[in-house]
Design a protein around this nucleic acid. Structure first.
Lengths: 141, 141, 141, 141
DNA sequence: GTGGTCTAGACCACA
DNA sequence: GTGGTCTAGACCACG
C-alpha cells in the first residue's frame, strides 16, 4: 500500500495525499519520471473517490513535483529542486512560528532550545531505528 | 487596541482571538483576576460578530485561562499553571512535527538544527527589541 | 450580469470565469477589498454548478487576485501587482509564440509586424469605441 | 530525427506532430510530392502509439498539406497556398486575441506594441541564427 | 486504459 | 448566510 489516510488527522484527505506523495518524492523514494498510480487506481486502492485523488494530484502538479501527460498518467518531475527549496522554507517558517509562539507565552529561550533539540533528536532517532530494523530484516533473509 | 485579527489569516477568527488573549495572559500582560473586555465591548471594538467573540471566550474558559462570573463578565484565572504546561506540551508537539516532516523530506539533521536555532534566535531578538522599546516607554511615563 | 460563459469558447467554464474576473480586477473595474459574488450566488446567477464556481475561485485565490475569508466570502486582493506582472509576462510569451510560429511557417518579418500592429490597433479601437459610446450615453442623461 | 514531441507540453501529442510537420512543409523544408515517413515508421522512431500518428496524418490531410496514396503512404501536397493563407489567418487571430487580452487587463497600448515588436525581433533573430548555421553546413558539404 | 471537466447533492465549520 | 470537502456518477478527448 503506497498510502493510507489517517482519519484522526485533522487535515483534509486530499492534503494528506499531497503530503504523503510529496514526502516520498522529496525523500527520493519515488524517482524522476517514474509513474505514480493512476487516479482511478489509487482511488480504488484507498477506497476514496477519484475526484479527491484528482484534486490531490492537481495540487502536486501545481507544486511542481509531478507532471501529467494526457492519456498516459502522472509522472515524477525530473527537477524537484524548486519544490525542495520551498519545502525547506516552509519548515523554516513553521519553526519560526513555534519559536515566536513560545516567546510570546513567556517560555524561556533555554527551554525552547532544549525542546527543539530533543524533538530533532527524536525525529532522527526514528529514522535510525528504521534503518536498524531494516538491517535486522536483511540479516534474517 | 487589545487585539487585532488578520482577515487574510487562514485561521478562523475565533481561534486568532483565543491565541491572542491566551498569549497575553501567559506572558503576564494580563494579570490574575483582571477583567477582560466584555463580549459586546470587544465585538464593537474589533468590528466582529459577537457570536464569534463569545465562541472565543467559551474556548478560553474551557482551556482554564479565564473564568466567567455570571452577569459580571470574564476574568483572568488566578492559576494558569495548567494552561502553561499544556502550552509547553503543544509547542513540543509542534516542534516534533516540524522535525519529523524535515526528516521525511530528507533534510539533513544538521541543517534542521541550524534552522531551529536561528529561528529561536530570531524570535527572541524580537522579544529583546520589544523590551527595549518598553523600557523607553517607561522612561516617558 | 457580471459574467457570461461562451459555449462556443473551447476553454472550460471554470477558466472562462477565472479569465473574466481576473480581467475585471486587473482593469480596475473591481476595487481592492471589494467583495465578489458568493459561490452560490454566482452559481445560481449563471446557472452553473457551485463546484465549478468554487474551482474558479480557488484558482483566482491561487493566482493572488482574490482572497477568501471563511464564512464571509471572497474579496479582491489589495495588492495585485504580482498578478499584473505575471499577466504581462504571459502576454509577452503568447506574442513570442505567435511570432515564432509565423517565422517557422516562412511568413516574412515585415508582414508579421504589420499584422501585429493592426491587431493592436483593432483591439484598442474597440476600447475607444466603448469610451465614445459611454460619452454619448452621458450626453443622453 | 524529423520530429520530437515534448511529453511535458500540455498540447496533445497528435497536435504537436501536426504542428511540427505543417511547419516543415510551410517553411519549404519538406518539398512538394516528397514522401513523409510512414505511420509505422514514425511511430517506432518516436516511440509513440501508431494510432496517435495516424490521427495526426489524418488531420494533416484534412488541412490539405499532405495527401495519401492508398497503400503507398503520405506525400506533401503540391499546392499548399490554401494552407499558407489559413495559417496566416490563424496567426492574425492569435495576435488579435493577445492584443484584446492586453487591452482588457489595462495594459497601455504603447507597452503592448513594444512587447510585440521585441517578440517579433526575437523570433526572427533565431531564424537568422539558423540560416547562418545552415550556411556553414552548406560549406562543409 | 488515462486525465479533465461538470453536475448533483450532501455534510461540516465558521461568522 | 459563507467557503471547504467529499461522494457519486457522468461525459469527453487523448493514447
Amino acid at each position: 500500500m503506497l498510502l493510507t489516510v489517517n482519519m484522526r488527522d485533522k487535515r483534509p484527505i486530499y492534503k494528506q495525499i499531497v503530503g504523503g506523495i510529496k514526502n516520498r518524492i522529496l525523500s527520493g523514494e519515488l524517482k524522476a519520471d517514474e509513474q505514480i498510480p493512476s487516479v482511478r487506481q489509487l482511488a480504488t486502492d484507498m477506497n476514496i473517490n477519484p475526484n479527491t485523488i484528482a484534486k490531490a494530484y492537481a495540487e502536486l502538479e501545481r507544486l511542481g513535483v509531478v507532471y501529467s501527460a494526457m492519456g498516459r498518467g502522472y509522472f515524477v518531475s525530473p527537477d524537484i529542486s524548486g519544490a525542495r527549496e520551498e519545502e525547506k522554507e516552509e519548515i523554516r517558517r513553521a519553526l519560526l512560528l513555534c519559536a515566536e509562539n513560545a516567546e510570546r507565552c513567556g517560555v524561556e529561550k533555554a527551554l525552547v532550545t532544549e525542546m527543539a533539540l530533543s524533538a530533532i533528536d527524536e525525529a532522527y532517532e526514528v529514522y535510525k531505528d528504521i534503518n536498524e530494523r531494516n538491517g535486522e530484516n536483511d540479516k534474517n533473509k
